[in-house]
């Protein structure tokens, strides 16, 4: 089966004096092509799930694959095709914006020249070309998140896993981000995690809800919205709250 697949994923954190805290329990999810919103309350495990999908974290059980590429056995090829933007994006001290993005490209296997060219293009996509030669660490929080997004885009991955990419962005930047989502989601898989249902607009084609360590809903945006009672002012939020309440 094609696309990003997570099968029977189990993960827990060890906490001092509290034993194992299970976060993901035998989770299976076939991520659809297009733009998907990964919804979940704070602490549901969205960041953990995306980290496992990107192989930044290793699951304690289960398998992650992309187009039959096993994330563990064919890690290099897998990682070339998957990009990840962590929730806490930090710029490396001393590097300019362009250098930061180019370095990310090099780390993903691009040649030095290709990563430099790719950085210029990626910065243009997130409208940061005018700040390309500024030190990345001097940018505002919102601008730094766009640098993180450019770093995820630079090597033109098939799958983008973006962990709360709009936190810290102003309304104008959020609107710009949604436009960008539509563009980049046209021919690839994009997963955007969020706990803010107000974020979810028509830029998203799919919704997945992570709750109690598993995927509680996985389907089209319109199907999710349809779960809310007719006439709801905020159908996404209502559907989400209804789903969570129903599973308790």
């Amino acid at each position: 089966m094609n696309g990003l697949q997570l099968r029977d994923i189990t993960f827990s954190y060890r906490r001092k004096g509290q034993g194992e805290l299970a976060v993901l329990q035998h989770l299976t999810w076939h991520v659809p092509t297009g733009v998907t919103a990964l919804l979940g309350i704070n602490g549901a495990g969205k960041s953990t799930l995306l980290s496992i999908g990107a192989t930044a974290l290793m699951a304690k059980g289960g398998k992650v694959s992309l187009n039959e590429l096993d994330s563990h056995e064919q890690q290099t090829q897998f990682r070339t095709r998957v990009a990840w933007m962590p929730q806490q994006y930090r710029a490396a001290p001393g590097l300019t914006v362009r250098e930061q993005v180019a370095y990310s490209g090099w780390l993903k296997g691009m040649s030095r020249d290709d990563s430099w060219r790719g950085a210029t293009e990626a910065l243009a996509r997130v409208s940061l070309q005018d700040l390309a030669d500024r030190p990345a660490s001097e940018l505002s929080g919102g601008q730094q998140r766009r640098v993180g997004l450019a770093s995820a885009l630079v090597h033109d991955a098939e799958v983008l896993l973006l962990d709360e990419p709009t936190s810290g962005l102003d309304p104008e930047q959020r609107a710009m981000f949604r436009e960008l989502l539509v563009k980049i989601g046209a021919d690839r898989t994009v997963v955007v995690s969020t706990h803010d249902t107000g974020e979810i607009t028509n830029a998203y084609q799919h919704v997945a809800v992570l709750h109690a360590g598993n995927i509680a809903f996985d389907g089209a945006l319109r199907d999710f919205a349809a779960r809310a009672p007719a006439g709801s002012e905020r159908p996404i939020e209502t559907a989400f709250l209804t789903l969570i309440a129903g599973s308790k």
Partner: peptide
């Protein structure tokens, strides 16, 4: 810079 622990190729 979060580079070391990121999933690189």
């Amino acid at each position: 810079g979060g580079i070391w622990d990121a999933p690189h190729t």
